[in-house]
Deep mutational scan, measured.
Amino acid sequence: VPQRAWTVEQLRSEQLPKKDIIKFLQEHGSDSFLAEHKLLGNIKNVAKTANKDHLVTAYNHLFETKRFK
């Protein structure tokens, strides 16, 4: 089981690129989880459509539901 890579403050910070969060989610989330949160596909394309709040919610949801690969 992966550990949380970032704190809530870090997740919301401008310093953390959306692409980093997407990469983490794609590496650790199950396909059904990723599909549900519309996070499947090319990281660049996902970054265009997903806002930061959406990614933070998905990140927290992944750990709450433990839907890891």
Rank of each mutant, 00 (worst) to 15 (best):
H37D: 00
Y59T: 02
H61P: 00
K48C: 12
F24M: 03
E36F: 10
T57H: 13
V56G: 03
G29Q: 01
L16E: 01
Q3N: 10
D31Q: 12
G41W: 04
H37G: 02
N42L: 13
Q15F: 10
H28V: 10
R4Q: 08
E64S: 08
L62W: 02
T65P: 02
Q15V: 07
S30I: 05
D53K: 06
A50L: 13
Q26F: 06
T49M: 13
D31S: 12
A47Q: 13
Q10S: 03
E36A: 08
Q10W: 04
R12T: 11
R12Q: 14
P2V: 07
R12P: 03
R12D: 06
S30C: 10
D31V: 13
K48A: 14
T49W: 15
Q26Y: 05
N60Y: 07
F24E: 03
N60V: 15
R12F: 15
L11M: 08
G29L: 02
T65A: 12
I43F: 08
K66W: 06
R4A: 06
R67G: 07
R12L: 15
K69C: 07
P2Q: 04
F63N: 01
A5R: 15
N45A: 14
N45Y: 15
R67L: 07
G29I: 01
K19M: 12
V56S: 05
K18H: 08
N51I: 08
I43R: 08
P17H: 14
V1H: 12
H61M: 14
Q10I: 04
E9F: 03
K23T: 10
D53M: 07
D53W: 07
R4L: 05
N42F: 11
K44I: 14
H61L: 12
L55Q: 00
D53I: 05
F68Y: 06
D31Y: 15
Q10G: 03
Q10K: 03
R12K: 13
L16C: 15
A5L: 15
S13P: 02
G41D: 06
G29N: 01
T49L: 14
Y59H: 02
V56Y: 05
L39T: 01
T57E: 13
K19Q: 15
L11V: 03
A5F: 13
E64F: 10
H61R: 13
K52C: 09
H28M: 08
Y59V: 03
K69P: 05
E9P: 04
S30A: 10
I21G: 00
A58K: 02
H37A: 06
L34W: 01
F63H: 03
Q10P: 02
E64P: 01
F63E: 01
A47H: 08
L55I: 07
L34A: 02
H37S: 04
E64R: 08
P17V: 10
K66P: 03
L34M: 03
A50F: 08
R67P: 03
H37N: 07
V1N: 09
E27S: 08
F63S: 01
G41C: 05
K69F: 05
A5G: 11
R4G: 07
P2Y: 04
A47G: 07
I22N: 00
N42Q: 12
G41R: 07
K48V: 12
Q26W: 09
I22M: 04
Y59I: 03
K19L: 11
E64C: 10
S32F: 08
L11N: 01
V1A: 10
S30V: 05
E9M: 04
F63Q: 02
E9S: 04
Q3V: 10
H37L: 08
H37K: 07
D20A: 08
V1I: 12
I22S: 01
R67E: 07
L25P: 00
K52E: 04
N42V: 12
V56M: 05
N51G: 10
Q15M: 09
T57I: 14
I43P: 12
Q15E: 13
L62E: 00
N45W: 15
I43T: 08
K19D: 15
P17A: 09
K19C: 15
F33P: 00
A47L: 12
K69R: 14
L34H: 01
Q3S: 09
R67C: 13
N42P: 14
W6Q: 06
V46A: 06
T7Q: 05
W6L: 05
N42Y: 13
K52T: 06
E14N: 15
E14G: 13
A50W: 07
K69H: 06
E27P: 00
I43A: 09
T49Y: 13
S30H: 09
E9I: 04
K44L: 14
V56T: 07
F63M: 03
S30F: 02
K18A: 15
L16F: 10
N45E: 14
H37W: 12
N60K: 06
S30T: 11
A47T: 13
L34C: 05
L34I: 05
K52Q: 05
F24V: 04
K23W: 06
I22R: 00
Q10N: 04
D53Q: 07
E14C: 10
Q10H: 05
G41N: 04
F33R: 00
H61V: 11
H54I: 09
R4D: 12
V8H: 07
G29E: 00
G29H: 01
Q26T: 05
S32R: 11
F33N: 00
K23L: 10
V56P: 00
K69W: 06
A5T: 11
L62R: 00
A50K: 10
Q10R: 02
A58P: 01
R12G: 06
N45V: 14
K69G: 06
D53C: 08
L34Q: 04
T57K: 11
S30G: 05
N60H: 07
F33K: 00
L11Y: 02
I21Y: 01
T65N: 10
K23V: 08
A5C: 15
K44P: 11
G41A: 05
D31K: 12
K48M: 15
I21N: 00
D20E: 13
Q26E: 02
K52F: 06
E9D: 07
S13K: 03
L16A: 06
P17F: 08
Q26G: 02
